[in-house]
Amino acid sequence: MNRLFLCASLALALLLPVASHAAGALGPAGLRSHHSAIGAQLANNSFGGPLVLQSEEVSRRVDGDVYAVLEHPFPAVAAALKDPGQWCEILILHLNTKFCRRSEEQGATRVEVRVGKKQPQSVQAASLLAFTWRPPRMQSDYVAVQMDAADGPYDTRDYRLLAEAIPLEGGRTFLHMGYALSYGGASDFAMQLYLGTIGRDKVGFTRIKAPRADDDGFVGGMRGVVERNTMRYYLAIDAYLDSLSAPAGQQLEKRLQAWFDATEKYPRQLHEVAREDYLQMKRSEVQRQSVAR
């Protein structure tokens, strides 16, 4: 029985990042206002770049937002974000994403994501999250996309993943990526078991107390899970966009290398596997995903 609960808790910990996404889009005016409001934080933070990561945990609800300035022009960002197929190329960079595809069902577009272990795993053994893709909102100076899933595994529900962006001066783009999910008692129990065992040393990026000899003060628990994976998905978007400047045959390797290098800048939070293990696994998973199209 203990082994069963542990397996469930591990699976839930892997699933939460993919499925937890944002409270709602701000819209073009709101996004411009927010960019101005957090200007000081974008210029001075612990990430070494223009990034603000926020999270909130309430009763059986997890919400998070990442705001970042991308060194990529708005047209390129908008073209990538509005295409569910390109989202699959982004999502597959994450360690726990085993497979992703766009599908059409009864006139609706879905983004089907399989998530699982940080090691090689069959598609069938990974858990399915089927997101309904909403038509993107496109303007000359704004793009917004959203995916929703009503239900998920391990007593989770009301998934939302969104991203919106506006152009900035100098060929840059301001990005907001948001996430949210609700979870029930079974999910809560499984997550607490995970965080009390092999996940006890996992932390996020927000420092909630002064460091001590035995405690660096970073947030843990569910907020830590969300913060780690919010950062992973932001880095995936950035790595994907950066790879588009390379010749087509070199783009995959460039984005895989860039994503791993970026995560290694935050080893306390994000280091999980050796470089070559990650690269070999992802090359295989991307090939599997391409063949299945």
Rank of each mutant, 00 (worst) to 15 (best):
N2Y: 10
N2K: 14
L10A: 08
L12A: 10
L14K: 09
H21S: 14
A22W: 03
G24C: 06
L26A: 13
P28D: 09
R32P: 02
S36V: 12
A37P: 00
L42K: 05
L42H: 02
L42W: 06
N44R: 15
N45L: 05
G48D: 05
P50L: 02
Q54M: 12
Q54S: 08
Q54G: 05
S59H: 13
R60M: 07
V66C: 09
H72M: 11
P73C: 04
V77I: 15
W87E: 07
E89L: 07
L91H: 07
L91P: 01
I92F: 00
N96Y: 06
F99H: 14
G107Q: 08
T109F: 03
T109H: 09
V111D: 00
E112N: 11
G116N: 09
K118I: 10
A130N: 07
F131L: 08
F131C: 04
P135V: 06
P135T: 10
P135L: 01
S140Q: 13
A150M: 06
P153G: 05
Y154A: 07
D158G: 02
Y159H: 11
A165G: 07
G170K: 00
G171H: 04
G178S: 04
A180M: 11
S182Y: 06
A186Q: 10
S187P: 04
D188G: 06
A190W: 08
Q192S: 12
G196K: 13
G196R: 11
F205N: 07
P211T: 04
A213F: 13
G220Q: 05
G221I: 01
V225M: 14
E227N: 09
E227S: 06
R228S: 10
N229L: 03
M231V: 08
R232V: 04
L235K: 01
I237D: 06
D238I: 00
D238V: 07
D238L: 07
Y240A: 05
S243F: 02
L244R: 14
A246P: 01
Q251A: 06
L252H: 00
E253A: 10
K254E: 00
Q257T: 11
A262K: 13
K265H: 15
R268P: 09
E272Q: 12
V273M: 12
R275L: 03
L279D: 05
Q280W: 03
R283C: 02
Q289R: 12
R293P: 00
